[in-house]
Design a protein around this nucleic acid. Sequence first.
DNA 1: CTGTTAGCGCGTTCAA
DNA 2: TTGAACGCGCTAACAG
Lengths: 346, 346
Amino acid sequence: MTESIHKTTITDLARELQLTPSTVSRALNNHPAISAHTKQLVQALALKRHYQPNRIASSLRLGHTRILGVLIPSAEINFFGSVIHGIENVARQNDYSVLIFQSNEDEHFEQQGVQTFLRSRVSCVLASLAKETTHLRHFTELKRRGVPLVLFDRVSDELDVPSVVVNDYQGALLATLHLVQQGCRRIAHIAGQQHVPIFHTRLQGYYDALQQLGLPQDDTLVVYGQVTIESGYQCMRQLLELPEPPDAVFAVEDFTALGAMEALKDAGISIPGDIAIIGFANEAFGKYITPSLSTVDQQTIRMGEEAARLYFDYAAKGSFYETPAQKVVLDPVLIYRNSSLRLDSG
Amino acid sequence: MTESIHKTTITDLARELQLTPSTVSRALNNHPAISAHTKQLVQALALKRHYQPNRIASSLRLGHTRILGVLIPSAEINFFGSVIHGIENVARQNDYSVLIFQSNEDEHFEQQGVQTFLRSRVSCVLASLAKETTHLRHFTELKRRGVPLVLFDRVSDELDVPSVVVNDYQGALLATLHLVQQGCRRIAHIAGQQHVPIFHTRLQGYYDALQQLGLPQDDTLVVYGQVTIESGYQCMRQLLELPEPPDAVFAVEDFTALGAMEALKDAGISIPGDIAIIGFANEAFGKYITPSLSTVDQQTIRMGEEAARLYFDYAAKGSFYETPAQKVVLDPVLIYRNSSLRLDSG
DNA sequence: CTGTTAGCGCGTTCAA
DNA sequence: TTGAACGCGCTAACAG
């Protein structure tokens, strides 16, 4: 289709310069055994003829594509958009390209994605698992074939491959400590479903922070929600009905925090004066609501950069699967905003 | 690198079945001239040997790659993440893949992106121009070479190629009409920099709506801002100081609207009771602020889908550049939320 | 219905 | 320092 325009090849250049394709190829790739004169000649003509090397032919010959296959649940989710941003920037610096495939949280699509990457002969697959993924065969298949695989964010411990995640535990710890530092003493936690690993981890971080500070652990201060705005609202109402309500709330993520804030506003309770609030994830809206929402940033761009770097580091060292799989754990970053700042110094 | 595992080829399959590679190829591609028996035989063995067709070889032979090259300013911007989402979904349905390149708003990177796509021999380029792009040579080059090019959102009229944009004019018109429909009569507009086409268009839509309704055009009700939260705040203050302040504000986009809302809150003016507000762009935060922000949705996912479809439609019809370039103009969709709803029926 | 032949464009032996 | 020859894996034209 639509292939009327003739594309210049090294053969064309060779013919015009009375050389062989091999020499032209070498000259273009800056091979040491080619005279400076010839190189100049070839490169000048290549420019003049608008020569563009055919990567397909080159890939076929070389056996690899310089393409990173990125498998994500959805590009529409901000988190993954940022990760793509990070990956693509590092890829570009290494003269690699990025192929995108969305699983749309469907295991079947995920398998299809792996297959597409296999067929495209990508140099590496960077993946974040779909929520509903139960079987990991398609990923072990990649490994079996020697295709480098790096996991990020939604990882699996069963798969023994390099990965990068954010330290949820530490994020929860820091968030809780921060509230105490602001003078709060009865810190509540609106938790998520405990079968989801990250939500469970955040609860642990919350508990351990209290323990580290010698604060009592009051189980009435922990309520379990559904990780939605509405659920955050309900959970907050529940906390307000306590005989001794909290003076601060650490919400498992920002939407929950938002719901909690709405409940407080409706009840005429001041934030952070009466009750301080902190969320988790640094969603885009947090900066714009009133009061602005303190939260824990998950370093999404860096996550993408690190994932890509993991591949390049291994590739530089030689083979990918002969080194033990490195697990990069990113430190989350506290974002101090008005919903939790009671003192002047954050 | 890391290529120890042997990959099955059609030749391997052919040898094992005492056939020729051509027959195997045809069987796998479901060629009509192959017996059902042979097809079954081949396909069974392909499965058994975990055969994955080599797309590189196929592309080299066929002369095209079934890859869409997507050039965007940044994957971190929500808008473009959604567009990618739309593009990838349509691409996948057609058994195409999506290659991503970010210009990071830099013309030099943009050129580099086009070059990468040229070398990768993508089947089509879908692009949204970088803000600072002045020269269009790299794009005309694509056209010159017969590589299909579809522009979306940030398009250029100089380039005579298919494109898809959202109807900003109509969005502004609808937004203004909506405010009037809610009983407002003195509608103000916080405008953007008029050298930016979309901002200028929105102003026109605003003017024309007033004219259509026979409302007076009061130039003191139009203030020009910088399209930031702070600027929105200042512009709103300016409007409040008028001898006859407005009873509604159409802001050129959501961040401006947000700033305006903050100014109103600080002044103790009720939204929408005293002054109704509507923004533009349907940014993620609008749903979550109080009151929730009415706005104009730009149909980002559909924009991606339509852009991809534009290519597939042309490709199906034959050659890309022999048909006049179609300009798809998407109808924006009004999102009615609390910042503008004074009546029960939206 | 299947086999034979050839070539897509490139990079890499081996030879000179 | 350059050339000749070959093959990566696949598909399409031509034969039979």
